[in-house]
Design a protein around this nucleic acid. Sequence first.
RNA 1: GGGGAUGUAGCUCAGUUGGGAGAGCGCGGCGUUCGCAACGCCGAGGUCGAGGGUUCGAAUCCCUUCAUCUCCA
Length: 876
Amino acid sequence: MTGNEIRRKFLDYFEKHNHQIVRSSSLVPSDDPTLLFVNAGMVQFKRAFLGEEKRGYVRATTSQKCVRAGGKHNDLENVGYTARHHTFFEMLGNFSFGDYFKEKAIDFGWDLLINGYRLPEDKLWVSIYLDDDEAHELWHTNIGVPENRILRFGEEDNFWAMGDTGPCGPCSEIHIDRGEEFGCGKPDCKVGCDCDRFLEIWNLVFMQFDRDVSGKLPPLPKPSIDTGLGLERLISLIQNVPTNYDIDLILPVMNKGEDLSEKLIGESWEADVAMKVIADHSRAAAFLIGDGILPSNEGRGYVLRRIMRRAIRYGRNIGLTRPFLHETARVVFDIMKPEYPDLLEASAFITNIIKNEEMRFSETLDHGLKILNDGLADLKAKGQTRVPGDLIFKLYDTFGFPVDIVQDVVRDEDLLLDMEGFDKSMEEQRERSKSIATFTTISDAYKNLSARGIMPEFVGYDKFSCESKVLVLVENGQETQEAAGGQAVEVVAEATPFYGEAGGQVGDTGKISGDDLDMEVSDTIKDPTGLIIHKGKIISGQIEKGETVTLTVDKSQRDATECNHTATHILHFALRSILGDHVKQAGSLVAPDRLRFDFTHFSQTDPETLDRIETLVNQKIRENISVRIIEMDAEEAFKTDATALFEEKYGDRVRIVSMNDFSKELCGGTHTDVTGNIGFFKITGELSVASGVRRIEALTGAAAVEYIQKDSKIIHDSARLLKESPEAVPGRIKKILSVQKSLEKEVEQLKARIAMRSADWAEEDIKSINDIKVLAKKVTVDKPAELRDMADRFKEKIKSGIVALGSSADSKALLIVVVTKDLTDRFHAGKIVKEVASVVGGSGGGRPDMAQAGGTKPENLDQALEKVYEVVGTIR
RNA sequence: GGGGAUGUAGCUCAGUUGGGAGAGCGCGGCGUUCGCAACGCCGAGGUCGAGGGUUCGAAUCCCUUCAUCUCCA
């Protein structure tokens, strides 16, 4: 059985038993800011377990993409050294939301393993929680597992909790004994041992308590089931291979590593480690980038970068010094395409990102090596043999230069590394970084509402006004019964035509009115559970909970927003058709007055291409295509080719917005009826927001026309000033600039010539002081640089001696003293100029042969120059 | 979110208590050569990331800001 078949069989089995097959969610958790990556199958069902969300089914099954790297569950450093650690893996699971419980969960699990996958019954062991006699009874009596193969473990191993409070319960694990040849040989080797003999296959969690803050465990009204079975591990058992890395979903990636490096698996321990690292990290990188994560300096992007760089580092150990990771990642697309076709679709983009990162990293390595070698040369010059920890840390911290590469370099040099110093610096850095995480808290009033399953109805797709009852009233974050004029309040109603900010589209504005109420709504937001909250101010009268009010959306604002939203979809299509299929939406803003579209693309788009995109969008607008909107089941929709956003969370029912056959997107936003309503589309900017992500800003309709008019006015005004036609403006400006530059140069030369004339050679100005020729003279210049040039000429003429020049410029005094080389051991220009400068109220300094000074009293310049002779006279 | 580093010619970089903006490569011209490579000579190319401040004077010191790199959370 192939890996893909094994996965399919699992899902089919549970589908047959009335489970809804649910698509793996994105690796990016949609509504959990505390979690870096989805790391278990239950993550996307968290709210369903908590009872905060109702789904259209009570049984579900998934094969969930998971990443464990960074954060609490971090397996990164283990990968490569063990048979079963991964940063990326798939977790199979079946879930019951208050439907079946322990008995069925155990029946299903055992049945599938024995009769489905044909695992040997006599090799299976089970573990249960200490006092879970119910589970013991089920395993022993119902299933027939002998007593001696049922083990009881404590809270550490067999009790599961979502957090410090909330749903939790005992769990039961199914293990397999692979035989002594896989064991560590220790006499106490048994289930739970770290070695490879006893493998945990499947963890069944029986969620039956709801732990409160005091630690008490009241039972949940409707107990639930959450199970997790590592796909790679299961495949390794069925395909009967020694490690997870030998299964058909991973081995081909390792083989690619063999081809590229010309090393063989099994050749050496180091090579095997490197191949495993490369194989695992190729998978992780491919899927993470596929889910919209890009390498960066923080958060998820940083973890991705670390994963890729770790792979590149290990690649060097087997002689892979040129970019290779994008090649091994390509193998991943091929293997995984049956279950993840979208990965293959994005392959051009993903390989591009990986290759880019490989090149960048080799740059940091080159740079780091240079600095390291400088540091080592310095060390050797001092005769030291111990590389200080702060140097290693600085290389790592500031330049991102990996420590193990420092070790590689140093190994050949017979030097020691101060790793203690390094660890200390690292610890200090950790202390420094500790900061308070900020979480946005939702008012408790709203929490209760969603927990009770109450959800406001959005009627704004076809209505702009409706009557409804006020469900919740919030003032200053606190729930209240009534509020009066002048107050800022938040209102949730049973039904509303107001669109709450979501999917980039901003919230509606408008009015809420009643018998004695006039409230202005300035914004509408949608909280993660789907509550539509109106924010605004009561102009007059009062509002109370339970009252029936009329909610009216500002239609002109909404119309403008709808045009921009539809334009965004057309732009998305245009980008994909002109730039390529790798373009994916990475965020957007749709407001009444403008739109912004972020998308994945690796380079800047040149103005000509931007024009082509703009032209295509406008063409679609003029075709006056009607915008079709259909609602359907989410699972059904995913099977169509509609464009879905990875980061976006969709409910059970979704809307598909399409225009002819060119654009088809899952979208909950509001749209205009026909594209012609947009009128006109104008791109106003293109810029970078992050590496690999570009942004286009644009305007539509009246705003776009206004923008063009303004631009046009600027050009015509400029043309009028230049007395040229608009077409000739750029050429003319270019010409003017070059003329100006040459004129400036000419002026400079002329000034220098005039200055020279004002400072003609004057033998009588030279005084001989103690047989040293000294010239102190007032000249006319306006820049220190000119003064310097002039002094140099005098110096050449005087051959041996001291020249001092002074000038006033900008109501300031400028002074310079130069001493010919033969006299610099007796006279220091800097010292002379300093003394002289005090006369003009300033100070100065410089080198022995040349020094400059300045002062604020130019009227004393003559005195200052006179003083030069005096100062020289005092030096012997 | 908290640190560190970098930003100077087309490219890679130097610039030592604040006091003439430099090198190498590349580019252009001339010379040597049948021609190329190589070499020699000459030359062009800079808002020293941007904006403030301190100072007689800032690439250099201080503040702000932007961009890039990097570590930690």
